[in-house]
Every structure is written in C-alpha cells, then in structure tokens.
Simulated assay, not measured.
Amino acid sequence: MTETAADSSIKPEPFHASIMQIEPQWIDYNGHLNMAYYNVMFDRAIDQLWLKLGIGPTYMKERGGSTFTAECHVRYLREIHLGDPVQVSVWLLEADEKRLHTFQELRHASEGWISATSENMSLHIDMNSRKVAPFPSDIRERIGAVVKAHGAVPRPEGIGRNIAMPSKR
C-alpha cells in the first residue's frame, strides 16, 4: 500500500485493514496467539490507516513528522489460533491539533467474532525536535474528514473502559 492523499470518497464506516494471517512463531506454549502479537497486528492496521491519512514513512522522510503511541488499552476477549485469518477495523474517534484517539477491533475474518480490542492515544511528533507538535493544516483536514465519517457509524462497545477489579456485591 502506498501513501496517498485524502480519498475523496471517505465512507461512513471504520477503516478495514488487510486480512492478516497468524504467523507460527507468534503462537505461545498455551497454543494460542501470544499477547504481544495482538499489538503487532493492531500496529500493522494503524500503519495502513496512517498511509491513507498521508502520515506514514514518506511523511516522516519528507516532512519530518510522525506519530508515537502515548497510551494503549488492549482487551483480550477470545483466543486466536494458528491458521485463523484476522482483520482489524479502526475507528478514528477524535483528534485535535496534536493527538489521535483510535479504537480497533481484531475480528476473525471469516467468522466475524471479536478476538480483541485496542484503544489508543497517539501523539504527532516533530522528528527534528522529538517533541509533540501540531499536525500541518492539510493533514488536519484529512484527519477531520475521517473523524467525521467514522462518527457517522455506531461506536463500538468497549471505548473508554478502564482496568479495575470487579466490585464486591
């Protein structure tokens, strides 16, 4: 996938990354996908969306900007095994001049059930100073269009959850 300008036909649906296959070395001694590799697949999906937004590797090389993850909350809901095809859907929930709030669902690509979710806050970084900096105006426009499109669909369950022990009754 190449880095492109904004698509004039942004659809009111989450971004759907390419279907991925579980790699054999990602399976742990429990016989399922090791927790670290869920993040690898979430990251690969975000990279695909970033290319669509024009903030991938070319952007970093030519314009000196990139994104760093500031916070991540992953929920593991159902096991994934070797041979399972998976696809990540990404919602760009909110954005401001320096931050992107995303939510992702990892689904079994042929059966449709959710295996895991990941909610993230990413920061725009000026790679010369390695400090948080505003997105350029053209990128902010592109991001705004995607936030608007993704806002037109129901928000998935699980956004904004925190980690806590179940309350005693």
Results as ranks from 00 to 15, higher is better:
D96E: 11
G83C: 08
Y59I: 00
F68L: 13
P57Q: 07
T69I: 13
P85S: 06
P57W: 04
I80F: 02
E79K: 09
G54W: 12
T67M: 13
Y76Q: 03
E79Q: 14
T102L: 14
H73M: 08
W91S: 03
L49Q: 00
R63A: 15
Q87W: 01
E62I: 03
L93W: 04
K98R: 10
P85N: 07
R78W: 03
Q48F: 10
G83P: 15
L82I: 11
G56R: 01
Y76C: 02
V90K: 04
F103M: 10
W91A: 01
R63N: 15
T102R: 09
A95L: 13
D84G: 14
E105W: 03
T58K: 02
F103H: 12
V88H: 00
L51E: 08
L53M: 08
D84C: 11
G65C: 08
T102V: 13
V86F: 06
H81D: 00
G56K: 01
A70R: 11
P57G: 05
R99A: 11
G54I: 08
G56N: 01
K52Q: 15
I55T: 09
V90M: 03
L49T: 00
Y76K: 04
A95G: 10
V86Y: 06
L100H: 13
A95P: 09
G54M: 06
E71S: 10
F68C: 08
G64Y: 12
L93S: 06
T102D: 00
G65F: 13
T67N: 14
G65T: 05
E62W: 05
L51I: 00
T67D: 15
M60D: 03
E71D: 14
F68E: 13
E79D: 10
R78V: 01
V86A: 04
V74K: 05
I80L: 04
D96C: 11
L100N: 12
A70I: 05
E94T: 03
G65V: 06
E71A: 12
K52P: 01
Q104C: 11
Y59L: 05
G65K: 06
Q87T: 02
E71I: 07
G54D: 09
G54T: 07
W91P: 13
K61S: 11
H101E: 03
E97H: 15
D84Q: 10
T102S: 06
H73R: 08
L82A: 09
E97P: 07
K98D: 01
L49F: 02
L51Y: 08
I80E: 00
E79H: 08
A95Y: 14
A70S: 09
L106E: 10
M60Y: 06
G83E: 05
A70H: 09
E94W: 02
